[in-house]
């Protein structure tokens, strides 16, 4: 009985594997896009211009305080299926919409991580640099940001793990990710024992991907604790 289920699982393994790759693709895309956007928004949070700061703060507040699932539905149904670029139509597949949907809250969180890291650098560093005739931009680039990057790394990795877990939501808008593949496998085989086994496998696969990230984060946190 058990070996029979294991054999069936082996049969479904390539499908599940492809599903996991889809999750990894979305998580890497979302954290990459979210980081770029987030750093940009984070820089705008530090702008000397009040209206720019207000816009950036609005971005952070909106996307940090919206449920991720809502944002995923939002991007899935607001964006068109394809986009016209010049004379050709470029497909805008569901997994990409989910990636954008996850990148939005990720960017808001990265912006906050960035702002927090900058704020954690003592004001005396600014003073010291200013008294050495650095300009504001130079202080940010040469003095503050290099000190921020190490402080940002652990919370950023933490966010990466959370975003990866968030990709599990993609199955709800029809992306063939790991959860969706598991569902299909469970429904097709239609044996309760196999259903239990396949979801345990899903759990194990997510854990195998996220746990190393969490461990690495812990190590970095110890290393960069001042």
């Amino acid at each position: 009985m058990a070996t029979e289920h294991l054999a069936t699982l082996w049969h479904w393994a390539p499908t599940l594997g492809m599903g996991l790759l889809q999750n990894i693709q979305m998580s890497v895309g979302a954290i990459g896009l979210g980081t770029l956007l987030g750093l940009l928004v984070g820089l705008l949070l530090l702008s000397p211009l009040a209206p720019v700061r207000a816009l950036a703060r609005l971005w952070v507040q909106v996307f940090r305080n919206a449920p991720w699932l809502v944002l995923i539905y939002f991007t899935s149904y607001v964006f068109p299926f394809d986009i016209q670029v010049g004379s050709t139509w470029v497909a805008f597949p569901d997994w990409l919409k989910v990636t954008v949907g996850l990148a939005l809250p990720a960017s808001a969180n990265v912006a906050e991580i960035f702002r927090g890291a900058v704020a954690s650098i003592p004001a005396t560093q600014w003073e010291a640099a200013r008294s050495l005739a650095f300009s504001r931009g130079q202080i940010l680039r040469s003095i503050i940001l290099p000190q921020c990057l190490r402080r940002m790394l652990p919370p950023w990795m933490n966010l990466y793990a959370v975003v990866t877990m968030g990709t599990a939501l993609a199955s709800l808008v029809g992306v063939h990710d790991l959860i969706d593949s598991a569902q299909i496998a469970a429904n097709t085989v239609n044996r309760s024992g196999f259903t239990v086994l396949v979801y345990f496998s899903v759990l194990a696969l997510f854990f195998a991907y996220c746990y190393p990230i969490a461990r690495l984060t812990q190590r970095l946190e110890r290393r960069y604790a001042f």
């Binding site: 005396t124 010291a128 008294s131 050495l132 300009s135 003095i143 000190q147």
Partner: peptide
């Protein structure tokens, strides 16, 4: 900035740049 190029300042709490070596602290400005 033009003024501060002329005026050095040494702080009570040193305020060295912790991410730079001693030599780089002297070179960067």
């Amino acid at each position: 900035i033009a003024l501060r190029k002329q005026v050095g300042f040494v702080f009570q709490q040193y305020n060295l740049f912790p991410h730079l070596s001693v030599l780089e602290n002297l070179l960067i400005a």
